[in-house]
Design a binder for these strands. Structure first.
Lengths: 124, 124
DNA sequence: ATAACATCTGGAGGTTACTCTAAGTCAAGA
DNA sequence: TCTTGACTTAGAGTAACCTCCAGATGTTAT
């Protein structure tokens, strides 16, 4: 699979794919004889994982560390587990922040809805 | 209320409070005769709103635009409403991303839990 | 053969959101 | 009076995350 195909498949620019590989957020991708990247399904799995984690805001450095640990073999299983646990806890905090802010936005929007009917803005 | 008090109250650095004011994320704060900021409860309300919205990841530019619209009076009510609606939609997408990633982290962690008992990592 | 196209690398540039520094002002305490 | 400490400004610096560019190379279509 070429970089342009992977780029389209996951909605990540080619530049970003190369960047992620360079900084270790995805492991090194095999090359065809002429030096072009040729992504396997396993490579795509790493890309997809990175895309998912990034969409939730995990830092690139953390993802790179996870990949590094994975490459070091089974001895790093406890480290990997605690890395994921830490990120899970961060995300739980983040989730609450987003939920609270959403509630607040909904409330404000309802105030504006009323304001647009009555011409009066109450409790902004 | 002094800047150091507001800083402590909302866990935002003094530098950041001044920065937010400078770029319009919070409206201009009144000064005491010697030029020091003296935050009213209303000012604090703006700070708290900014803190909440930022915790969910809303961009500073968007917050500044909202503040600007608020200062322009009632004619901007429809604009403000649609700005908030747009941010609400972004946050709903973000919420889903965080929820999905959380699920995935939980699943991976459960795999690592099993791996640490059995010594075998399945379905990473 | 030549042109068009995709990819490569290394490095520079851009955006967002702070964060820090330097130099200055002012009020209160020793 | 002198110094300490909290505050001020303007502007530079930093970190994270891309994004773009130049110049090279290799493949495909005319």
């Amino acid at each position: 699979m070429t970089i342009s195909e992977v780029s389209k498949r996951y909605g990540i620019s080619q530049d970003t794919l190369r960047y992620y590989e360079r900084i270790g957020v995805i492991p090194a991708v095999n090359r065809s004889r002429n030096g072009l990247r040729d992504y396997t399904e396993e490579d795509c799995g790493w890309v997809e994982l990175a895309a998912c984690m990034r969409s939730a805001g995990l830092p690139l450095e953390t993802l790179a560390e996870y990949v590094r640990l994975c490459q070091e073999g089974d001895v790093t299983i406890p480290d990997r587990r605690s890395l994921l646990l830490e990120q899970k806890e961060h995300l739980e905090v983040q989730l609450k922040a987003v939920q609270e802010t959403l509630k607040r936005l909904e409330y404000k929007i309802s105030c504006y809805d009323r304001a647009m009917e009555t011409g009066r803005l109450t409790w902004d």
